[in-house]
Design a protein around this nucleic acid. Sequence first.
DNA 1: TCTGGGGTCCTAGGACCC
DNA 2: TCTGGGGTCCTAGGACCC
Length: 430
Amino acid sequence: MFGLLDINNFYCNCESVFQPRLQGKPVVVLSNNDGCIISRSAEAKVLGLQMGDPYFQVKELLERHQVHVFSSNYPLYGDMSRRVMYCLAQNAPEVEIYSIDEAFMDLHGMERYLGSLDTFARNLRAKVLKRTGLPNCVGVAPTKTLAKLANRLAKKQPEHGGVVFLDTDERRRWALEQVAVEDVWGVGRQYAAKLTAAGIYSAAELAACSDSFARKHLGGVVGARLVRELQGYPCHGLAPSEDGSLRRQSICCSRSFGQALTSFDDVLGAVATFLSRGAEKLRRQADAAHMLTVFVSKSRYGLEPPPYTFSAVVTLPRATNDTGELLTQARAVLAAIWQPGRYVKAGIVLDGLEPAGQVQLSLFCAEPPSEKRSLIMAEMDALNRRFGKNTVRLATAIPAPGLAVAPWAAKASWRSPAYTTQLSDLLQVR
DNA sequence: TCTGGGGTCCTAGGACCC
DNA sequence: TCTGGGGTCCTAGGACCC
């Protein structure tokens, strides 16, 4: 049996935990650069606000209903997430952190300790709420896809007390009947359109599809697995996350700018900043990258026709996680794709990761990785951890003298304090 | 004026190998 | 009519997730 615990309206609830006056009020959290809505409280959903609504389009509605608006505060959400996952790890035998606000658990054999998995799930739900203040729901079922479905029902149908347990075939059938096909995990916009065109509207009807239909219309083996999972046959195992830090296969760091940029040096500054973050993540998981992609984007919403994104990939002579080495390459890639224009976004992708300790030397690259350089990187990371982000950084990533904020800096007009990760932001109670 | 940022997995096709 | 039969690796693109 798999369990899935998911925090309700995660970002919004992270905010209201520290500002209890927000409870029962409409709250939204905006994406980076205060672009669009990415989390809504129940009261905000009632107002008709949708996920992904651009802020400038709903600004008046927000003001009219006195919705509390927040810029996203990832240090806060990341830390709250860590607390939730820690609580799960203490209570479940194996945990797979699936996203910032949800985790799968392998509950095999747990009924031996608590009588039933239903009791286990209800206890766990209460513990997470008590330890973090974050309301959550749990779904328990024989497959991950059904656990997702059960979790969804637990959220949508409050009469179940936040837990739905699909232990019998009868319960499984009941659950499948309740859910529309587009709300099944693994069915996105494209597949949903195909399925409804074929007369398949509910999860139950999808579960009754033939293997060949699923293979043909739902992405081959992916679709076949999806249907089998709905039928109750597990096709996806649990991929436990050991210490809470996930080991990524690729690392991407990109941001929209607070304003459009036209100068090469400004965009290079942004690229250097994002690259520094990417390389830091790389070193944190003790990997080195073989490939580096740099991309820049123009606005998709103006008068200009596509393409909007320009990118190029370079295969590095030797895998590295050295920010300086990567920047030399990134600068060349950016120069190669550069053309005059108004850029609104840039980013980098680090790919082809391998453990930093066993980097393969290329036949054509005589130079081995320098021990001194990696010591410098380690020292830089240590300083930034101790004294805060950006204490030490590459000169290219520093805005021109005289500028208080970088030209590429994102907007964040309504950011809450980093209550749990910044001593000066500690909550004060009188 | 203003529209997010991170990932995953799979498939198809081409180049190349014996 | 018929043209060997396996492989691997790489890239691009499409679909999905939160």
